[in-house]
Design a protein around this nucleic acid. Structure first.
Lengths: 197, 197
DNA sequence: ACCTGAACACCGTTCAAGT
DNA sequence: ACCTGAACACCGTTCAAGT
């Protein structure tokens, strides 16, 4: 048989990642497989291993795109209102996690091998996202630059935690509380504490 | 062939759950399979399906035991010190997630089907755990009973979020910050905010 | 009421053989 | 430098056949 050369290396990679994301979005995290990806782009399974190390590698690329999508989604929520900058961003995060639940789940609930190490450009996408948080935090409160990084991380971890436990229902039995209420509460008191000291 | 009747129904279930937990603890979440569980207890795969609905069902029972272990682990960290009750509990949670990382991961990072609904007794174990948080929170701050539940949930979601992002490295590139530092920061300012208002 | 062995429909990953 | 087809070593789940 041999090569078909209908698509360049880059095109092939893009096609595979796109197919993977579609499978996840339409059928859920647990339905993703190399064989489905291959079938969807009209190639044999073996071909994928010419462009990716393994399934985890493909997932990493999907996740990297999800980080891009999240960034684009949150970027437009940025505002300079001293009262609402952070709550607007946090609600954006909640909206995104609902709208793109399966992709969000692949990013945060899929158990990667513990020795997995992400490339530089991947880490940089995370840094870029945190810049949004730092920016919103600093419009609401004036903080020393040294503190800004830690406070953003703490705040965002908290928001993420609420979001995660809301979606999975894993740490609360009462469904009466919405994720929005909990996030609002977190922001309110944490920020009040910061302002005080 | 037929029955062996060497073990009662309850013994069989207990053996399978124990085997599953050991596989997870020793080899990691991704290595768990029904076939390995069956082999470990000296039975055929098919037998498992006589005692459990499916693998997810077995995992639910493992997770329920993990909740028990977590409760026992945290129970001894409870103290009545008005300054350190919560930080002691939070550090206990961090310790547990490190000591029993894989079980913790199975509980929080394994993507269960979204229609999965947990039995009553499972939800009650979560409630029981939250009682510890509520108890510690109320020794540090006097709060209306109505608020206690929500504040505990927010606080624990935050601690869990920090813990998760620490272990997976998924939302911070700087490894310089320890989970302990971040949790301490969260507690400090959130509680300060609560005390103020 | 169990338990087995085999079957079914899948997996991820590798690789000799082809162009 | 690709791409295939087949192989290998696994999966989860079901079920007829046995006691």
């Amino acid at each position: 048989m041999g090569r078909r050369s209908k698509h360049s290396r880059e095109e092939m990679q893009e096609m595979a990642i796109k197919a993977a994301r579609e499978i996840v979005a339409e059928e859920g995290v647990r339905e993703l497989s190399t064989r489905k990806i291959a079938a969807k782009i009209g190639y044999t399974v073996g071909t994928l291993y010419h462009f990716f190390k393994n399934l985890d590698d493909i997932i990493m690329y999907v996740n990297s795109q999800t980080l891009d999508m999240l960034y684009e989604y949150l970027k437009h929520r940025i505002n300079k209102n001293k009262q609402t900058a952070l709550i607007s961003l946090a609600n954006g995060y909640l909206d995104f996690s609902k709208k793109h639940f399966s992709e969000w789940q692949l990013l945060f609930e899929y158990p990667m091998p513990k020795d997995m190490q992400y490339p530089r450009w991947y880490e940089e996408k995370i840094t870029k996202l945190f810049k949004l948080v730092e920016q919103s935090l600093s419009t609401q409160i004036k903080l020393p630059k040294i503190d800004l990084s830690r406070k953003s991380r703490v705040l965002w971890s908290g928001i993420h935690g609420v979001c995660l436990l809301y979606h999975t229902g894993k740490l609360h039995k009462t469904k009466s509380e919405t994720a929005e209420t909990l996030v609002e509460d977190l922001l309110k008191y944490y920020l009040a504490g910061l302002k005080m000291i």
